[in-house]
Amino acid sequence: MLSVENLKIEFYDHSLPETAVDDVTFTMGEGEILGIVGESGSGKSLTALSIAGLLNRGDITKSGDIVFNGLNLLHCKRSELRKLQGKDIAMIFQEPMTCLNPVKKIGWQVEEALRVHGEKDKIKLKEEAIKALTDAGLEDAERIYASFPHQLSGGQRQRVMIAAAMISKPKLLIADEPTTALDVTVQAQVIELLRRINREKKTSILFISHDLSLVRQLCQRVLVMKDGKIVEQGEAEDIFANPQEEYTKELIMAIPVVKKPD
């Protein structure tokens, strides 16, 4: 469904180009949860952003191919890319505090993906939004629909983000460190929610995190990135049981020992 080939991202903020992502190649199947782990600066977020088509700064060049259901996202027109954004590919981000527009009601923001892609019927929009909010585990959906972001807690906002992303039933959900800003109990709930979405809606999830233990809980397959390159990839269980690279071993060693839930 998604294949990334020889993706290379370079920055030009100084005279010399700086390579942030180098020769990244991987594929993702339908309904799969793929994890990308690495420390900050490893290029994992840039990879995610470029798949979502959100890396369009003048001082960045991208080369290689990102093919999503037959369309090359790196080389297609902006208008074609926009038809996918929010409809087939949705994204949630690290900071639920700042990712919602502070002056717009939650309902309006949740509905947006549908509205941008042509839905005009207000009653239907509201129905869908309420349903999406409920699906995202928000019990008081009617009230939240009419609220503003500053009235919600961090966990609620991240659920709102997920509801807004899932409202158009995307084929691919990119989750860039979605739990980093949340506290541990909420973190676990959000992970559970993502797992349920994957199971019930068959949505593929690209899960970006620096936290190996989360990746282990959620993902079937894992890519380990360091300094813009993929250093190791494989089934999650294999990598944890038998890491090949020194760097991966270090990452695993760094996890505090937690009993794995069965």
């Binding site: 979502a52 926009r82 038809k83 954004q85 929010g86 981000f93 990712c99 527009n101 993906a113 983000m161």
Partner: peptide, 23 residues
């Protein structure tokens, strides 16, 4: 960040400006 979120939903630069940023 919220501007990036809006882009991720397929907003064009124009609708982005008038619907999100201006207010």
């Amino acid at each position: 960040d919220y501007a990036r979120t809006a882009y991720s939903r397929g907003n064009s630069t124009t609708s982005m400006l008038y619907r999100h940023i201006l207010q």
